[in-house]
Computed example of a mutant assay.
Amino acid sequence: MFGVRRETRLPTERLILRPPRLSDFPAWARARRDSREHLKPWEPTWAPDHLTRAAFRQRVHWARKAMRLGRAWPFMIFTKEDGALVGAVTLDHVRRGPAEAATLGYWTALAHARRGYMREALSEVRRFAFDDLRLSRLEAGCLPENAASRALLETVGFKYEGVAQAYLQIDGRWRDHVLYAALRGDRRGRVADAAEMRDT
Score class of each variant (00 low, 15 high):
Tyr167Glu: 12
Ser149Phe: 01
Asp132Leu: 10
Leu138His: 10
Asp131Val: 14
Gln165Gly: 08
Asn146Cys: 04
Phe128Lys: 06
Glu124Pro: 00
Tyr167Ala: 13
Leu135Ala: 03
Ala164Val: 10
Gly162Ser: 01
Leu138Cys: 09
Tyr160Pro: 02
Ala166Thr: 06
Gly141Val: 00
Gly141Thr: 13
Ala166Ser: 14
Gly157Ile: 02
Leu122Asn: 03
Phe158Trp: 07
Phe158Thr: 01
Ala129Glu: 07
Arg126Ala: 08
Pro144Val: 02
Val163Pro: 01
Asn146Lys: 13
Glu120Cys: 07
Phe158Glu: 06
Gly141Pro: 00
Phe158Pro: 03
Ser123Thr: 15
Ala147Asp: 14
Ser123Gln: 13
Leu168Met: 12
Cys142Gln: 10
Asp132Thr: 12
Glu120Val: 02
Asp132Met: 04
Asn146Arg: 14
Ala147Pro: 02
Cys142Ala: 15
Phe130Cys: 04
Ala166Phe: 09
Glu145Ala: 13
Glu161His: 00
Glu139Asp: 14
Arg127Ile: 02
Gly157Thr: 02
Arg126Ser: 13
Arg150Val: 08
Thr155Ser: 14
Arg134Lys: 15
Tyr160Lys: 13
Ala147Trp: 10
Asp131Tyr: 07
Asp132Ile: 08
Gly157Asp: 04
Lys159Met: 07
Leu152Cys: 05
Tyr160Phe: 14
Gly157Val: 04
Gly157Trp: 09
Asp131Ala: 15
Phe128Gly: 04
Glu124Ser: 10
Leu122Cys: 02
Glu145Pro: 00
Glu154Met: 10
Leu152Asn: 03
Asp132Gly: 01
Asn146His: 15
Arg134Gly: 08
Phe158Lys: 12
Tyr160Gln: 07
Val125Arg: 07
Ala164Thr: 12
Ala148Val: 09
Glu154Gly: 05
Asp131Gln: 15
Ala140Tyr: 05
Gln165Ala: 11
Val156Leu: 12
Ser136Ala: 14
Glu139Pro: 00
Lys159Val: 05
Phe128Ala: 07
Arg127Trp: 08
Gly141Glu: 12
Glu154Arg: 12
Ala140Asn: 04
Asp132Gln: 12
Leu133Tyr: 07
Ala140Cys: 05
Gln165Arg: 14
Ala166Tyr: 11
Val156Ile: 14
Ser136Pro: 00
Val156Cys: 09
Leu143Met: 13
Gly162Leu: 03
Ala129Asn: 08
Leu143Ser: 06
Arg137Met: 09
Tyr167Val: 09
Leu135Lys: 03
Glu139Tyr: 13
Gln169Arg: 15
Thr155Tyr: 10
